[in-house]
């Protein structure tokens, strides 16, 4: 069994949002303001014309961080949120009571209500649509034109992601909360 994670060369992101589109298409995410599993956050350039700091503008692709110590899993009253055999944080819609406590507990705004099942939904690294079919990439990774995303098994020292994390500096989002996120932003 694997322990999947994702490394992001986020400085390569061009904000084309092909990843958002691919995710929606692959996983059947409905249209609508609040319906998205992944997104690209934009930090706008700082300063006033003509002294605008172009370097301060950042595109920050984000999604569920698949924390090893996930607050959403801890707070779920029916264990509808669980770690699957690949350490992917998943939601079982049969058990979800839609109390939305997990949405409150998630520090990353990674969860939303799926109006198809009327339960909470989130990124699952394309577990149902791709990993279950033996594929080893996610839709967002496969579609990215600048190869921002590297997906793979963190427990396999020979995997591309392990090699990358062994040689590059990285940071994780809100690491101080002790959530042990498995999304790594390469510096």
């Amino acid at each position: 069994m694997a322990r999947y994670g994702m490394a992001l060369n986020y400085k390569n992101c061009i904000n084309c949002r092909a990843c958002e589109t691919a995710c929606k298409e692959e996983n059947g995410v409905l249209l609508g303001r609040d319906n998205y599993r992944i997104w690209v956050g934009v930090k706008e350039a700082e300063g006033e014309f003509p002294n605008i700091s172009i370097m301060s503008q950042v595109y920050h692709p984000s999604q569920c961080q698949h924390c090893d110590n996930a607050p959403c899993q801890q707070v779920c009253p029916t264990n509808a949120t669980y770690y699957d055999e690949n350490h992917v944080v998943r939601v079982n819609p049969t058990k979800c009571i839609l109390c939305t406590y997990c949405i409150n507990a998630c520090p990353y705004d990674a969860r939303y209500v799926d109006n198809r099942t009327v339960t909470v939904d989130k990124c699952n690294f394309c577990s149902d649509t791709r990993l279950a079919n033996g594929e080893t990439t996610t839709a967002c990774q496969a579609t990215c034109p600048t190869k921002v995303r590297v997906f793979g098994d963190l427990d396999d020292p020979k995997s591309e992601i392990s090699q990358l994390l062994a040689t590059k500096e990285y940071r994780r989002v809100k690491e101080h909360l002790g959530t042990e996120p498995k999304l790594f932003y390469i510096l």
């Binding site: 801890q74 707070v75 009253p77 029916t78 264990n79 058990k95 839609l98 109390c99």
Partner: peptide, 25 residues
């Protein structure tokens, strides 16, 4: 609560003992 009947069933079948909502309820 979106699914109160599901709550009644799975609060018993698969209790989330680390959840304050489970204990409170």
């Amino acid at each position: 609560i979106g699914h109160p009947m599901t709550m009644v069933i799975y609060n018993v079948l698969t209790p989330g003992l680390t959840s304050a909502i489970w204990w409170m309820g």
